[in-house]
């Protein structure tokens, strides 16, 4: 008997079940969804992210989004996702021919610019989903991460996201909830930002 079968046999005998025996249904998921206005969500998102040391810039249109990003990049080298929304804002993602090129660019850039799958107001969270248009290293290797996101992607909380899309990783290989900068308190519980991931997180929300 291989390990798989051995484990299944032990599990079934431990809980007294037979192969193919129907289970009871699981308890209902508990999702807390409450309607919040755009203003409330914006205010909450800003408060939550700023409390963690991130910044939030609210801009009315694509052109001003581009401008806001330029100000934040402040002349540093940057990498940007080949994401259609960034293209709309006029923020050019370099086309990378192969994984090595992308990786080297991310490893040396000062700033990584992405869009996002959505934002969660309650916790100040950026939800990123790995896709060809949103590589994972751009938001991870550079010391600064800027996310440029349309306002209609600002949700109230994780519960709302999961109530709309119960299995959001079905069509992606990875999803990351980014809530503020990278941090550690492993030495004397003293807070240090940017220990492995970006130490600076900026979100530009594009309204209208």
């Amino acid at each position: 008997m291989d390990s798989r079968d051995a484990i299944f046999e032990r599990v079934r005998s431990a809980i007294g079940r037979k192969l193919g025996q129907k289970p009871l249904p699981p308890p209902e998921p508990l999702l807390r969804v409450s309607a919040k206005t755009v203003e409330q969500r914006l205010a909450r998102f800003r408060a939550a992210l700023e409390a963690l040391g991130g910044t939030v810039t609210l801009v009315p249109n694509f052109a001003s989004a581009r401008q806001a990003v330029e100000t934040l990049v402040d002349g540093q080298s940057f990498v940007a996702s080949p994401h259609p929304f960034l293209a709309q804002c006029g923020i050019a993602g370099m086309p990378y021919a192969n994984p090595e090129e992308l990786r080297n660019a991310c490893a040396t850039a000062g700033v990584g610019i992405t869009s996002a799958y959505c934002l969660l107001a309650q916790t100040g969270t950026i939800v990123l989903r790995a896709t060809p248009q949103e590589p994972r290293l751009i938001s991870l290797l550079p010391p600064v991460h800027i996310a440029v996101v349309p306002q209609d992607r600002l949700l109230t909380n994780l519960d709302e996201m999961l109530s709309m899309i119960p299995r959001p990783v079905d069509d992606s290989s990875a999803m990351v909830l980014v809530t503020g900068p990278s941090r550690t308190g492993d030495i004397e519980q003293f807070l240090v930002r940017g220990v492995h991931g970006p130490g600076h997180v900026h979100v530009v929300i594009v309204g209208g």
Partner: peptide
């Protein structure tokens, strides 16, 4: 919520 929650599928 901690800084990062990864859901890898």
């Amino acid at each position: 919520l901690t800084s990062y929650t990864s859901i890898v599928s």
